[in-house]
Amino acid sequence: MTRANNLEIDTGSGLMLVHEWGDPNSATPGILLLQEIFGVSPYIEQRAAELSALGYYVIAPEIYWRLDDVDLSDEDAPDLLERAVGTMQRLDWDQAVVDSVAALEYLRGRDRRTGIVGFCFGGGLAFNVAAVSSPDALVSYYGSALPNLLHLAPDVTAPSLHHFGDADDYIPVDVVVPALVGAEVHRYPKAGHAFDNPMPAFHDTDASALAWERTVEFLSRTLQGAS
């Protein structure tokens, strides 16, 4: 897997640690990759490396950078999910949006097309960022905050792709989907929440593969101009 470089982005109120894949000075399209509640985990790093290999300059900010005592590094810890949820609940959502917009503006600073890809917590955050700072494309995987963000749907004008598992216990999919007017939405009948995450408790092999295939095609079409 291609290893990331680290840089810091000025958010206006501090320097945020960001991981990058690819050449920042290239003309390739940029992707802002927004983490799950587990942070910029090896899974998120893997997806970033895969996107970079497809010809994108990818950055993944440490959204928890303002919080103290964040330790989510042990993926085998029995209380990992509990600690991740607790960490996310301490986060200032509005500040996380501001920080993410700063990362998106960094991508735009080199006059490139820009997209946002977010998973779970990051899927909702990506939706909010797209509403206040229009990217060229949005991909949201089962955005966990979407039920509370549907009032922003009219403000999300970028071409958008959403993935949901019909067996998701955290998102009322039948309520959320009708509000995403104009978006491309795919539902996976047997998949639960976080089905793309490779952890055995979440992963659905078939849904993950199909959703990623659709994501790659959508990004190619919207950011690289492929038909």
Rank of each mutant, 00 (worst) to 15 (best):
F127D: 01
P172I: 09
S52V: 12
A153S: 13
A194T: 13
Y64F: 14
A102W: 08
F202G: 01
I171C: 02
E105N: 10
S133L: 09
G118Q: 08
V98I: 11
G115Q: 03
D196T: 07
W21D: 14
E62C: 04
Q46E: 15
L51G: 12
H193Y: 11
E8T: 15
I63V: 15
T222G: 00
Y170I: 10
G192I: 08
I63S: 12
G182C: 04
V185E: 01
G22C: 13
D155L: 07
D166S: 04
D136V: 01
R3I: 02
H193S: 05
Q95P: 08
A49I: 03
L125M: 10
F195L: 12
P135T: 05
D99T: 14
R221A: 12
G86R: 10
S208V: 06
L161Y: 01
E8A: 14
P198G: 09
G124F: 11
T87A: 08
G22L: 06
E62T: 15
A126F: 00
A102G: 09
W93E: 11
G182I: 03
H151E: 14
R47Q: 12
V216H: 11
G165M: 05
R221M: 08
L15Q: 08
Q46V: 08
A53E: 15
C120P: 12
S100I: 01
M88S: 02
T222Q: 07
Y142L: 08
H203A: 02
D168V: 00
L72P: 06
F218C: 01
L161S: 00
A131L: 04
A153K: 04
L7W: 02
V176N: 03
E105R: 15
N5M: 05
A77Y: 06
V97D: 01
D23M: 06
D168A: 04
A60Q: 06
A179M: 11
G122F: 09
